[in-house]
Simulated assay, not measured.
Amino acid sequence: MPRIEEAAKAADWAAVRELLEARPESEDRVGLLWAVAETAGVEKWIGRAVEAEPHSALPLLVAGARHVCWGWEARTGARAQHVSREQFATFHDRLRTAEKWLYEVAEREPGWTSPWYALQATGRGLQVGRTTARRRFEAAVRRDPHHLGVHQQRLQQICRKWGGSHEEMHAFARQAALGAPAGSLLGQLVAIAHLEHWLDLDSGEDAAYLRRPEVLKSLREAADRSVLHPEFVRRPGWVQVLNTFAMAFSLTGDKALARACFEATEGKASEFPWYYLDGGDPIAAYRKHRTAAGR
């Protein structure tokens, strides 16, 4: 990932393109794409690449993805009541621009999953409605039925904080996890759903929730089907998936399974979901809970 970030920071489109083309859609290009999209300043030069390659979908995809991230940067992660009217205006303007380009990419490259992944993020910000949001998810999974990022986006869409419900979120996570092949990364959805539920509760209720027997059973079932299954393969995203289970088991008090997940990470910490703990310092949180688990 650092190579493509360095290329993006240097406005080196040739290098960015080469690295993206080396990771085809069939091998999940979203991770690399988002590394570029989250790089500040890409919006200043990607337009030149679009103009230089008018018949290529790839620079347009990068431009659209960057505008998604750029839009969310304008909104910030604050709750809606703390976001100004000007911020919302900028947010929506950038997302609408992203949608225009992403739909054009989807038309040019009907087999690509990436534009539909990004259109789920724009749809959430623009509040396109439940039917449109569901159709965008369905369009993505028709192209890649077990795509982790696509399912993560859908899970966010149906969270309570975005107008869904805990019940809908948990049902979707479990169905996706158990419906995926053994060893799939999609088991992470169950852990994310429980962490989202935990985050939505008041202090005291949150800890009690994660120690409920049915929550522990659900997490163990998902881990056995996913990261702890003999057929688990370290595909793109595996570090974050293992870290998510490590944090979830740490918070439930299941030290044995937390330790197993920490061991499998090989010392690699992911930003998500650890930034929810220890003042937003993922490395500090990872190390603290790894030590508590006996690693």
Rank of each mutant, 00 (worst) to 15 (best):
D200W: 11
T90W: 01
I283A: 12
L119M: 12
A173S: 04
R85Q: 09
R85M: 12
T265I: 05
E168T: 05
E99M: 05
S218I: 09
A106D: 05
G164N: 11
E21C: 06
A80S: 06
R212L: 10
G64M: 01
W101Y: 00
G204D: 00
V233N: 03
I192C: 13
F88S: 00
R225F: 04
E271M: 13
V68F: 08
H147T: 02
K100I: 09
R96V: 10
T252P: 05
Q81Y: 02
A118T: 09
V239Y: 01
L185F: 02
W72M: 10
A256C: 00
D206A: 09
T131H: 08
T132K: 07
R108C: 06
T90K: 14
R212W: 09
G125P: 13
M247N: 03
E104I: 01
R211H: 10
A176L: 01
K161M: 07
V227I: 05
R235H: 13
P230K: 03
F272T: 11
W238A: 15
Q156W: 10
L216G: 10
A139F: 02
K44L: 07
E73P: 01
R174I: 01
A223Q: 00
A78H: 05
R134E: 07
A57S: 08
G294W: 09
A133C: 02
A8R: 07
F249G: 00
D200S: 15
P2W: 14
L228K: 06
E86V: 11
R174N: 12
V241L: 07
A140K: 14
P145S: 06
L33E: 00
P273R: 02
K288A: 14
A269S: 12
S165G: 11
A176Q: 05
L210C: 04
G183C: 15
T122L: 04
R295E: 13
D202N: 13
E205V: 08
C69S: 11
P145H: 07
S165H: 03
L61T: 03
E107P: 10
G64C: 06
E25S: 13
R130H: 05
G71I: 11
E86A: 05
S184K: 14
A292T: 03
R3S: 06
A191T: 08
G111A: 01
L219Y: 11
C159Q: 09
V68E: 14
G123Q: 15
R29T: 06
A292Q: 13
V62W: 07
F88A: 03
V68K: 01
V50Y: 00
T252G: 11
V16K: 02
P115T: 00
H170K: 07
F232C: 00
F262V: 07
Q156S: 10
R3F: 06
P213Q: 01
